[in-house]
Design a protein around this nucleic acid. Structure first.
Lengths: 112, 112
DNA sequence: TTGCATAATCGTATATTTACGATATATATT
DNA sequence: AATATATATCGTAAATATACGATTATGCAA
């Protein structure tokens, strides 16, 4: 951010925007879906399933991990990743709240 | 995208990722909330409510409009913006589906 | 018609993101 | 100990995002 501080926005908005950002790439959506289907899997499996290089997948995994959406643990020479279900549940709730807010308060009609 | 084509991902994932991207800035979340509360408002009101320059707010509005989340119409020398309720409803549903999928399929336990 | 107000767009600087190949690191295996 | 395998990180190029001020365009009012 060049001029305005991101801190001038409500903390809650900053937080949910950060998670939306983590979800804002189709490759990361795809990673989450694969992890969900397989319960857990290693990086190499994801690389096989995605049209991206190994280093790129690793980078996306890092983004998802930093956003708290996935967990990873070292398993020998591999890394095993899985969904952080609590984070997904929390995001589901926060999204619901946000969309409900937007939807409800913008009743009763389109005025433009 | 430098090398891999974004088209190699499922269309649905590309679409929802694009909406998440539009939601990935706290300023745009704030804009949506203001629009919801006021039913509709002109650009200038948003500028007053946000810690951003007029041109920046206009840019964010363009992003939200391109994502289909808001509608704008010219009203004399002003532009009046409002929430696209259908788009919000659709996104609410799609988000629910996605999070349910991730949540449900990653049952029954954390395996890593 | 001239001037005023509003908002969009332009130009631009900076930061971030995305992608890749290459390399480093860490753990098994021989 | 040496080798193989898996993944993270580094380096980097290109694209995109974010912010601002300045300018342009539009429509209303005097």
């Amino acid at each position: 951010m060049a001029f305005a501080s991101i801190n001038e926005f409500p903390k809650k908005d900053i937080e949910i925007a950060a998670v939306f950002k983590a979800l804002s790439h189709p490759g990361r959506i795809a990673i989450l879906k694969v992890l969900a289907k397989k319960q857990s899997c290693i990086c190499g499996e994801l690389v096989e399933d995605l049209p991206l290089a190994q280093s790129t997948v690793s980078q996306h995994l890092k983004v998802l991990k930093e956003a708290g959406l996935v967990q990873g643990e070292i398993d020998g020479p591999r890394s095993c990743y899985c969904i952080n279900k609590d984070a997904i549940k929390k995001m589901k709730r926060q999204c619901g709240d946000l969309f409900d807010f937007i939807d409800k308060y913008s009743e009763p009609v389109q005025t433009c």
